[in-house]
Design a protein around this nucleic acid. Structure first.
Lengths: 223, 223
DNA sequence: TGTACATCAGTGAACGCGCGTTCACTGATGTAC
DNA sequence: TGTACATCAGTGAACGCGCGTTCACTGATGTAC
């Protein structure tokens, strides 16, 4: 009936093989980084010939795009699940950290060094927005709090956010909430990405404590 | 006299060509990312044959390591210069941002996605520590402030820092200063890296304002 | 100042490699009557 | 239930490519007497 009927045995088989390909791709990325990803190497590990993979992905770039999609989708699901558990912002933050530590290269595929000139397709951008929205909603659920931070810079930012409230379609948020969301996101990413890149190991500091302290700081902002 | 006398014409010539090679390498990285760096492509652009570059770099990895070294060294010098200008932490932070925006891929070569299994040679680690020290000293120059942040997480972090004060050899710092340095570093990196990766463009927010607000927040901590 | 020798930058040919990708094909799986 | 046909997964050979890297060499630059 539909052009892609997922219930015919052939389609189920296709989906299985596709999943196995991406599984091997993730393994390869985890051990050698995304730039080392090779279709032939994956095929060899699966006991297939190289060209066979072209039944499942049109090109190497296609496979990488699918991995990026899986990355975003996986994080979005993880956060949605945490939000559903009712653990609040704190639960979301720890789910984020756990997800990142589970596979650092996967995190970097989503939030790491960009490839100049690469533009993610629209459906991936949409999932990215979904992630932001989940975090933003959790911020909105906190007791309303006026403004995080004083001074001219915070003022200017608040004025700016007042004008750009509309970017989350259907989720109008007061500038204070937007601000809180932004500093939550950037601060957690700051600690997390430096931790995953190993920049703390040299100085023997436990990033988990710093992460927790930053999270507490955002939660306690004039609450 | 010395094994490498930089004053003989031949040595000066060598240094020039080496510099020209790295210049072209940076161009290539800026436009296509570090993983696309190719010795042959660089040679072609310089109007030389490929093997000629082996007079100057033992291998491709050697060249990349040199670029990483230049990255760290350049940032260290930039921050030292800013510190010398007496502009304080605020000046350092803006020098950091300007340096990053000047060449995003260069910033990512230093603080971006790590290559699994790669370990920087000791001299690069030393320059990294130099950068941290410059920032730390600027934090120490601020009025002493007790502790940034309350709550159990901040307490735990402070206790942890109390034990790990020694990591900056010769620069003993009270836990409050260390804490301030850490949040300065991670928060600025958080905003900066997401900005450079283009994660703000989709939502039309000006990262410069957020960066300035975060900087102000760190400066104003119980000061 | 001039000649003899050593150093070394750069060339061009060649190596092996693994890559992405195409193509014509075989054989198994599913569909229609 | 059985036969005829269509679909499609996977193979193996082949393509061209650009890569890093080696090697024996030429010719220019510098050094020693």
């Amino acid at each position: 009936m539909a052009t892609t009927d997922a219930n015919t045995p052939r389609e189920r088989y296709r989906a299985q093989v596709r999943a196995e390909i991406t599984r091997h791709a993730w393994e390869q990325i985890a051990t050698a980084g995304a730039s080392a990803l090779s279709l032939n190497a994956i095929a060899k590990r699966m006991g297939m010939s190289g060209p066979a993979l072209y039944r499942y992905f049109a090109s190497r770039d296609d496979l990488i795009t699918e991995l990026v999609r899986e990355g975003y989708r996986g994080l979005a699901d993880t956060l949605d699940r945490a939000a559903g558990d009712g653990a609040g912002l704190s639960g979301l933050a720890h789910a984020l950290r756990d997800w990142a530590l589970e596979d650092p290269q996967r995190y970097f595929l989503v939030y790491g060094t960009p490839v100049p000139g690469y533009h993610a397709p629209a459906d991936i951008t949409a999932v990215s927005a979904e992630i932001m929205t989940t975090l933003l909603d959790a911020c909105a659920a906190l007791p309303e709090d006026g403004t995080p931070g004083d001074g001219p810079a915070a003022e200017a930012l608040r004025a700016h956010l007042e004008e750009h409230r509309e970017w989350t379609a259907g989720h109008p948020a007061p500038p204070g909430t937007l601000h809180r969301f932004l500093i939550l996101w950037t601060r957690l990413h700051g600690v997390l990405s430096l931790e995953l890149a190993g920049h703390f190991t040299g100085m023997g500091i436990d990033p988990a404590l710093l992460y927790a302290a930053e999270l507490d700081g955002v939660l306690a902002l004039r609450a």
